[in-house]
Design a binder for these strands. Structure first.
Lengths: 141, 141
DNA sequence: TTCTTAAAGGAGAATCAGTCTTAATTGAGA
DNA sequence: TCTCAATTAAGACTGATTCTCCTTTAAGAA
C-alpha cells in the first residue's frame, strides 16, 4: 500500500496523462478508502483533505482514471456506482443484506474458468475478461 | 414465450400479490422487450400500449416484482438500471463497446462452479448464488 | 528560467432517472 | 354485493451526475 501510494504520480504519468494534484489526491483516496467506495465516499474524503477540489472535478477525474485503466467501476444491483482501485484479476463478494462488496481473490478459480473458456468459444462474442459476482451474506451482518 | 405470457396472472397470484392490470402489463412488457430493457424502455412500451399507467406506477411495480423474484435487476458499468425477466440460472455477456447485455445459459459452467464451491467455503461469507459477468464484444458491433 | 498552449480544473446551473406524497381507486375475500 | 387494505395516478421533489464556460496549470520548447 505504501508503495502503491508513493507510485501514484508515476502511474498517472505512464498513461500519458498530466500529473495534477487533483488526480493524485483522488487516486490516493480510492486506495485509502479501499472497500469499493462510492463517488460520495470519495467526494467526502477529498473535501475533507483537499477542500478546494470541486465535485465536478472528482467525477471528471474518475472518468479519466477509468478510461486509462487506473480504476475500475463496479456494478451493483441497487446502489450508485462504486470504484475499485485493485487491478489484479479478482472476483466480488456482494452482501445482499448490507450492500458491502469485498474482493475475492482465488487463483484456482481463475485457472478453472480460464481453462474452461479456452476450449469453450461463445458464438458471436469475443471474450475479454470475466468477473464472478458471488451473492450472499457476510456473517458479521 | 406464449406460455410465459399467458401465465402472468398466475405467477403474480402465486406470490400472494393482487393481480392488477398494471402488474400484468408491466411483466408482459419485460417479457416482450426481452433484451434487458431499461426502465425507460419499459415506460415507453407501457405508455404506448396502456397510456393511463403512470411512470411512478411502473417503478413501484418493478420494485414489487423484484422483491417477489419475478424479475431481476441488472446493471452495466455505465448505464441506468436494466431489468431481466429470465429467472433460470444464467450468466451475462456484456458488450464493452455498445453496452448490450445478453443472457448466457451454460449448464456445464454452472455445474463446474457449483461443484467448485461445494468444497470451497469462503470464510465469513454465506454464499447464496453467483453470476458470471463475461465482458467482451459482440461480433455484430 | 520563462514562454506557450493544450489540457485540466472550478463554480454552479442543468439534467433526469428514480422516489415520495397524497388522494382516489380497486381487487378479492367475506 | 360490500368492505377495506392494497394499489394506483399525478406530479412535485431529490440527488447523483453532467454540462458549460471561464480560469488556471503542467510540461515541453526556447
Amino acid at each position: 500500500m505504501k508503495n502503491k501510494i508513493s507510485d501514484i504520480g508515476i502511474r498517472i504519468k505512464e498513461k500519458g496523462l498530466k500529473v495534477t494534484p487533483q488526480r493524485i489526491a483522488i487516486l490516493e483516496a480510492i486506495y485509502k478508502l479501499d472497500n469499493h467506495p462510492t463517488a460520495e465516499n470519495i467526494i467526502d474524503f477529498i473535501h475533507k483533505n483537499h477542500p478546494s477540489i470541486a465535485t465536478g472535478t472528482v467525477y471528471k477525474v474518475l472518468d479519466t482514471l477509468i478510461e486509462n485503466n487506473l480504476v475500475k467501476r463496479v456494478r451493483t444491483e441497487r446502489d450508485v456506482m462504486r470504484y475499485d482501485g485493485v487491478l489484479e484479476h479478482h472476483h466480488h463478494l456482494y452482501c445482499i443484506e448490507c450492500d458491502l462488496i469485498e474482493d475475492y481473490v482465488d487463483e484456482e478459480l481463475n485457472d478453472i474458468l480460464m481453462n474452461y473458456f479456452k476450449n469453450k468459444k461463445i458464438e458471436g462474442f469475443e471474450m475479454k475478461d470475466f468477473v464472478l459476482q458471488i451473492n450472499g451474506t457476510f456473517n458479521k451482518c
